[in-house]
Simulated assay, not measured.
Amino acid sequence: MLQYRHEDVPYPLGIDACMHGICTAVKHLHSLRLAHNSLKPTNIAIDSDDNLILLDFGSCRRFS
């Protein structure tokens, strides 16, 4: 999870790339007229290449 990335990996996280990944994911959801509604570090996974993966879509809803 993104929340623990800084503890588990010895090299720094690219903050600009991280923020770009989050913004890209949110823009994609919004293009589908969806809102995640629970975006927080515990709902973002990160792979070994520092690619972000959104999790927990239980609160995801269509825009009204």
Rank of each mutant, 00 (worst) to 15 (best):
residue 6 H to A: 08
residue 58 G to S: 10
residue 51 N to Q: 11
residue 19 M to E: 07
residue 32 L to T: 00
residue 24 T to D: 13
residue 20 H to S: 14
residue 26 V to F: 02
residue 13 L to R: 10
residue 50 D to M: 15
residue 35 A to V: 14
residue 37 N to T: 03
residue 55 L to W: 01
residue 29 L to S: 06
residue 40 K to V: 01
residue 27 K to W: 00
residue 50 D to R: 12
residue 56 D to L: 05
residue 44 I to Y: 02
residue 22 I to V: 15
residue 44 I to L: 06
residue 25 A to K: 05
residue 27 K to G: 04
residue 9 V to R: 07
residue 55 L to C: 15
residue 49 D to E: 13
residue 33 R to I: 00
residue 22 I to C: 10
residue 44 I to D: 01
residue 36 H to A: 03
residue 41 P to I: 04
residue 44 I to A: 02
residue 52 L to I: 15
residue 27 K to L: 10
residue 50 D to N: 15
residue 17 A to S: 09
residue 1 M to Q: 05
residue 2 L to A: 09
residue 7 E to S: 12
residue 54 L to R: 10
residue 59 S to V: 00
residue 51 N to T: 08
residue 32 L to H: 12
residue 17 A to P: 01
residue 10 P to Y: 03
residue 9 V to P: 00
residue 11 Y to W: 13
residue 22 I to S: 10
residue 61 R to Y: 03
residue 44 I to P: 01
residue 9 V to Q: 05
residue 53 I to F: 07
residue 33 R to H: 12
residue 30 H to K: 13
residue 16 D to P: 01
residue 29 L to D: 02
residue 22 I to H: 09
residue 14 G to D: 15
residue 13 L to S: 08
residue 34 L to E: 01
residue 19 M to L: 15
residue 35 A to E: 05
residue 56 D to I: 03
residue 36 H to C: 02
residue 20 H to G: 03
residue 50 D to T: 09
residue 13 L to Q: 09
residue 2 L to H: 05
residue 36 H to Q: 04
residue 45 A to D: 04
residue 59 S to C: 11
residue 8 D to S: 05
residue 38 S to M: 00
residue 36 H to F: 03
residue 3 Q to N: 12
residue 35 A to I: 14
residue 27 K to V: 00
residue 37 N to V: 00
residue 11 Y to S: 12
residue 16 D to T: 13
residue 43 N to E: 03
residue 26 V to R: 04
residue 38 S to A: 14
residue 23 C to P: 00
residue 6 H to M: 05
residue 49 D to S: 13
residue 12 P to M: 07
